[in-house]
Design a protein around this nucleic acid. Structure first.
Lengths: 209, 209
DNA sequence: GTCTATAGGTAGATAGAC
DNA sequence: GTCTATCTACCTATAGAC
């Protein structure tokens, strides 16, 4: 992002501050996703965002508060869409394909998302208490079961876990996969080849269950 | 690990130092896997290992060197066994089931392994250059193809990626899965239920390919 | 090999001028 | 809202006694 140009334009409009906070959040998102909570230094964040270090404390009281903002956003990007897809009225196969497509699109644009979220959750599972309300997961399962009463709770869990495993893991292993495909282009090609394959695998799983 | 007791015994034998280094490595493995490179402080590591902070620098020159030791070990635990299984003389199905079982056993004992390795690889892919020699991956693929010449290089990659995705991801998402299963016991039950399911899914994938 | 003391640098956070 | 200067705490690493 070429912040300097945008910055100058907004500055002339006298609305610098309007985008300052947004720019901090935008930069923090990049940086935390790359390095995790402990790897990010406030000074580096300020430099990359093109703002003074003191401003970080003006907008967000401290590092933890800023991180919480980013983590919530990342978590919701990663798990928010499943809920709405499952809640929508459509066939089981349509729902499943929609989830798979949604993950592939999201992670092609932002591949670091899952490693970041799962690393931080692993480091401190307390984050989960704030994020995953207890109503959220039964909702997923009921979304799958709706109109498909033969799917038990247990089977629904295995189906969801299979979908997410197959869709998300290749992006988490991206550095390794890119070593095999020798570069970004090959990675994208392999991923897009995988998209229909994952759909088929899940369809066959449901038949077998 | 109850280091204090072992420590006292070896101390009486005058062989304290023999296990000191091993204890540091053991503790560092736990700590780095939990918090990642940037999250670990040398003081905390020394305290947990029951040794003086200065000793860490005596055995390993600096934090980075100690970390490299741990990372190599973790990486090899995670990817070492695939190679030897694939190289062994057995049928395709036997190889695949052996890999799946190997992952489930390894990760039931040490669930943090994959998140740690992939987070650190994501943070600095340069680690990969030292770990993944260029001969390693073609070897995996040829291992799968051996005696099954109908499997193209491309198909082999998808098969391996599917096996690893299905075997490893549930452990990476462990905090979330444990929230659903309400505790460790439920998690282990779900995982063991999954083991044969993963084998079936992969078998069906190969038929479909 | 093991410990204490401390150097040297950097982290997050605050105070106050503009 | 923005910037400079600075405080306090902590981190890695080293020096040197035992």
């Amino acid at each position: 992002m070429q912040w300097n140009k945008l910055f100058a334009i907004f500055d002339q409009m006298g609305k610098k501050s309007l985008i300052t906070q947004a720019r901090i959040i935008d930069t923090a998102m990049d940086l935390f996703l790359e390095k995790g909570y402990d790897g990010v230094k406030m000074q580096e964040l300020a430099d990359r965002a093109g703002v003074n270090k003191g401003l970080l404390h003006h907008y967000f009281n401290n590092k933890q508060t800023l991180f919480n903002t980013i983590f919530s956003e990342a978590f919701n990007q990663l798990f928010g869409k499943i809920g709405s897809i499952l809640a929508a009225a459509s066939t089981l196969e349509e729902k499943i394909n929609a989830i798979i497509d949604s993950y592939f699109d999201l992670l092609l644009a932002n591949p670091r998302l899952p490693v970041f979220v799962l690393f931080e959750l692993n480091r401190d599972p307390a984050y989960l208490e704030k994020m995953f309300t207890n109503e959220r997961l039964p909702l997923f399962i009921r979304g799958l079961q709706h109109g498909n009463s033969h799917i038990t709770r247990q089977k629904a869990m295995h189906i969801i876990l299979t979908i997410v495993s197959l869709s998300v893991f290749p992006f988490m292993a991206r550095p390794i996969v890119m070593k095999i495909t020798r570069g970004e282009a090959g990675f994208v090609r392999l991923i897009n080849e995988r998209r229909p394959l994952v759909k088929t695998v899940v369809k066959n799983l449901i038949k077998a269950l």
